[in-house]
Amino acid sequence: MVRHFHIDNPTMKNDSSTAGVHIPSARAIESVGAGGFRSDLLRSTSKSSAIKAEVRGLDFHYGGFRALKDVSMQVQANEVTALIGPSGCGKSTFLRCFNRMHDLYPGSRYDGEIRLYPDDVNLLAPDIDPVETRIRIGMVFQKPNPFPKSIFENVAYGLRITGEKRRQVIHEKVEKALRDAALWDEVKDRLHQPATSLSGGQQQRLCIARTLATEPEIVLFDEPTSALDPIATASIEELIIELKERVTILIVTHNMQQAGRVSRYTAFMYLGELVEFGETSRIFTRPAKRETENYITGRFG
């Protein structure tokens, strides 16, 4: 049976076995605060959103190991969705399915679908070129990994790949991406210095700018702050929250507080399965599943 997790509604019993909604629809999201009520939140007039991607019965194998088991969920457009779970639960593996990163390594196999809306294409279909997918879906990695080139060239690289030749356009887009990544003011006078001369937090923002330059539809963040200090972490988190106005964001994090701070939806994964998916505010105050409860309260193992 394919289990579909969708955005839960407090008026609905939190039952994961209801059939999934296959048509991307605007869904009213109702939020009930944990500690008390806010009457404006009770009315179902809060921001409604469309579905950006839908994962259906995703299985992923590599080297004979079934790393993801029948994962199904929806990714809301212009929202931050956090993937949490213990090490080895498959959350990074899951994230890397979205941009077909696994195709780089031999012996991997996808089953199921990741449908991207509004075009309604299956990203995992064999006739979809992973290169195209990666242009549409950007990724920011765990450790800042700028190219050992200049700051400017780092951001321009995506544009060069997509065949942009006009210098003026490249300059404009690089500046915009750096502004969007809240880095422009810090680097505008040294665009041609090596990217590695930046601090760790700046490097990570540069990597975000590099991803933003080609205007992806979804940005995947794979533990983006695990190598950064709290101040740099805060600036990245602030950035993520701002970016969701323009892109859809999926973030893997080990830091539950981080998931709480930046995300609207949270998926808890364990042993390759999606155990629970729902609004972050609910998952962190009253998770429905015992495994989730044990994980978020630190009762694992």
């Binding site: 944990a34 500690g35 539950m256 507080q257 709480g260 962190f284 105050t285 009253r286 998770p287 989730t292 409860e293 978020i296 309260t297 630190g298």
Partner: peptide, 12 residues
């Protein structure tokens, strides 16, 4: 401790 879930509810 930044309690979450049942711990958060307990403390609250």
């Amino acid at each position: 401790r930044s309690p979450l879930g049942v711990d958060l509810r307990t403390v609250l």
